[in-house]
C-alpha cells in the first residue's frame, strides 16, 4: 500500500504492538520471582479478561458500538468448553475453535435484530441479552447444570505435556493475551479496521461511499464474539467450575468498565484496563463492596476527565510535553495514537 503511516506518540503503530509483546514476554517470568499464588491467580483472571477486552476494543474502540452483554458471549465459550469435555471428551485445544465460532454465531444472531436500533437502544438490548442468557443457563436442566453450573475435569495440556501448575496456566493465558493483541492490532491497521472506523465516525457518509453499515456492525460484533469465545474456554479451564451468574450483566458491566478505564482505541488500553481493574482491590486492600464503589468513582472520573481512558490520557500528556519541546505544528493527526 502506498499509504504513508503517520508516526505518533508511540512511534509507528507497530511500536505499540512490539512494546506489548515485550511486556508480555517479561510478565511471563513473574512466577520465577516467587510471587504468591494469589497474585498469579489474579493475573490469570486479568489475562482472561484482557482477551475479551481486545475483542471489545474492535467493537467499541473501532466501530463505536458498546455492548453490555459481552459476558454472555464469554459464557457461550465457557459452557461450550465444559459441555464438549463432558459429552465428547474434547479438550482445551479442540474446544477453542468451536467455542470461538459459536460465540461469534450467537453475536450474529443477536446482532441482526439488535443492530437495527442504534446507540442507547442497542446497549439496553445487549444488557437484556446477558440476563436472558443467565436465565437460559439456570433453567437448562442437566445440559447446563442449572444454577449450580458445570464442572470441568479434563486436564489442559500442550503437545501432550500437562499444564498442571498455576504458573504454566498463567503463561498459557499470557500467550492468548499476546495473540489477542496481535489480532486486534491486525484489525486496527487493516482496510477492515478503516472500514469499521468509517462506520464509527459517520454512518451516513460511510453508506454514501459504498460501505454496508449494517453488515459491518454485525461483523464487528461477531469478531468481538470470537475473542469472547476463546476467553470463555480459558476461563472454564482455569476455574474448573462455571455457573450462570459469572456471565450475567454485572460481569458484562465490569468488562465495559475495564475497557473504558484502559482506553478502547489504543492497543495498550485493554491490557491496562484489565490489569488495573483486576488488581485495584488487591492494591488498596478493598472488600467487594468498597471496590464496587471505587470502580464507580473511577468510571465517572474516566468519562469526565479521560475520554480515551488512562492510556489515552497518558499519551495525550506525553504529546503535550513533546509538542512544547518541538513546537510541533497544530494538526498532525492524533488519531493515529488511537490506532497504535
Amino acid at each position: 500500500m502506498m499509504f504513508h503511516e503517520t508516526t505518533n506518540v508511540l512511534g509507528r503503530p507497530s511500536a505499540a504492538l512490539g512494546a506489548i509483546l515485550v511486556l508480555v514476554a517479561v510478565l511471563a517470568f513473574v512466577p520465577e520471582a516467587g510471587v504468591s499464588s494469589r497474585i498469579i491467580s489474579l493475573a490469570i483472571t486479568a489475562a482472561i479478561n484482557v482477551v475479551v477486552l481486545y475483542g471489545l476494543s474492535v467493537l467499541f474502540g473501532q466501530t463505536g458500538i458498546l455492548s453490555l452483554g459481552h459476558a454472555a458471549l464469554v459464557g457461550v465459550g465457557a459452557y461450550t468448553a465444559a459441555i464438549l469435555a463432558r459429552d465428547f471428551g474434547i479438550g482445551f485445544w479442540g474446544a477453542l475453535p468451536i467455542a470461538a465460532v459459536l460465540s461469534g454465531l450467537l453475536a450474529i444472531v443477536v446482532g441482526f435484530p439488535s443492530l437495527r436500533v442504534s446507540g442507547h437502544h442497542f446497549v439496553i438490548l445487549t444488557f437484556a441479552l446477558g440476563q436472558l442468557f443467565t436465565i437460559f443457563l439456570t433453567n437448562g436442566g442437566a445440559f447446563t447444570g442449572g444454577a449450580t453450573g458445570l464442572d470441568l475435569q479434563l486436564p489442559t495440556s500442550v503437545l501432550g505435556l500437562p499444564l498442571d501448575s498455576l504458573a504454566a496456566f498463567y503463561r498459557l493465558s499470557l500467550l492468548f493475551v499476546a495473540l489477542a493483541a496481535v489480532a486486534a492490532w491486525g484489525v486496527a491497521n487493516s482496510r477492515y479496521g478503516r472500514t469499521l472506523r468509517a462506520v464509527r465516525e459517520n454512518e451516513k457518509l460511510a453508506g454514501s461511499i459504498g460501505i454496508s453499515v449494517g453488515r459491518q456492525k454485525v461483523g464487528a460484533f461477531a469478531v468481538s464474539g470470537l475473542f469472547a469465545g476463546v476467553s470463555g474456554v480459558l476461563m472454564a479451564y482455569f476455574l474448573r467450575h462455571i455457573a450462570p451468574n459469572q456471565f450475567a450483566s454485572f460481569p458484562s458491566i465490569y468488562l465495559a468498565l475495564m475497557l473504558m478505564i484502559g482506553g478502547a482505541r489504543l492497543l495498550f488500553g485493554p491490557l491496562a484496563g484489565g490489569i488495573l481493574v483486576s488488581f485495584l482491590p488487591e492494591i488498596f486492600n478493598l472488600d467487594p463492596v468498597e471496590s464496587r464503589i471505587l470502580y464507580g468513582v473511577c468510571l465517572i472520573a474516566v468519562i469526565l476527565l479521560l475520554p480515551q481512558g488512562v492510556v489515552g490520557g497518558l499519551a495525550e500528556l506525553w504529546q503535550r510535553l513533546t509538542a512544547t519541546r518541538h513546537a510541533n505544528p497544530a494538526a498532525v493527526a492524533p488519531h493515529t495514537i488511537s490506532e497504535a
Binding site: 472506523r197 459517520n202 488519531h335 488511537s338
Partner: peptide, 10 residues
C-alpha cells in the same frame, strides 16, 4: 460531512 477523527488522507 467527513470522518472527523481521521486524517484527511485516511
Amino acid at each position: 460531512m467527513c470522518f472527523p477523527g481521521l486524517s484527511v488522507l485516511e
